[in-house]
Design a binder for these strands. Structure first.
Lengths: 112, 112
DNA sequence: CAAATATATATAATTTTCTTATGCATAGAA
DNA sequence: TTCTATGCATAAGAAAATTATATATATTTG
């Protein structure tokens, strides 16, 4: 996503947080929502998203609910209680990460 | 490092920034400096560090200088001009990342 | 003095995560 | 009718890290 290595490892955090806000979402909706919120800056690819959703489900962080809308399948995901707990952890980790990286990077920058 | 997936992809940024501040450093020194700045929170492993340094050197972002201190070898790394340019890019990418992640995560958090 | 720890670099095997490509299928717009 | 959007899925490969191992000297500790 976005040719910026820093996003590596962030997908789980993004998914969990969006599901915490939106109660239930399906995969394609997640990609669109991320595109919308980031003004097109961040595009989640299906090749990353779907395996990630399957993994979170297997870990018991997400529950699935199938629906059919206009003859097309939709798989809605929602947080389990465990998933909500993990969301708290992931958001704390993000704040930790930002604080630590700022400490490493802040001091003063020299171009020459 | 630190059992926090978010650090994945940040190592290059950390190395470049430290070298921008400290002019020249050797591998072990980098691990210790990171430990110091982050109060032991972040530990860079050799298995990640050395291959990363070799890659940055191969890409022409770092220059190497061998020294022998008390009979032990040291490999000092310093930024090339290209490396300094890339440092600017990486720091901009970090700010971008933080801004985007905040946008995705900020709204409001619900525990229930 | 011997053993453990710190200093210093390196690589190999494996795992995790993502990219890229492909595949299938329906709906709607051009 | 063809292209784009919607919707899910997986497989091959790349990239970055973890974990383990290897080597070697210096220093500290018991």
């Amino acid at each position: 996503m976005k040719n910026n290595n820093l996003y590596k490892g962030s997908l789980t955090t993004i998914i969990l947080k969006l599901l915490n806000e939106n109660d239930k979402m399906y995969g394609y909706q997640i990609t669109q929502k991320v595109k919308e919120i980031t003004n097109g800056e961040l595009n989640i690819t299906e090749g990353a998203l779907y395996p990630s959703l399957h993994k979170l489900e297997a870990e018991g962080l997400l529950d699935v609910e199938f629906t059919k809308v206009q003859n097309r399948m939709r798989k809605y995901y929602k947080l389990t209680e465990l998933g909500t707990q993990e969301t708290v952890n992931k958001l704390a980790e993000l704040e930790d990460y930002i604080r630590t990286m700022r400490a490493l990077v802040n001091p003063k920058f020299r171009t020459l």
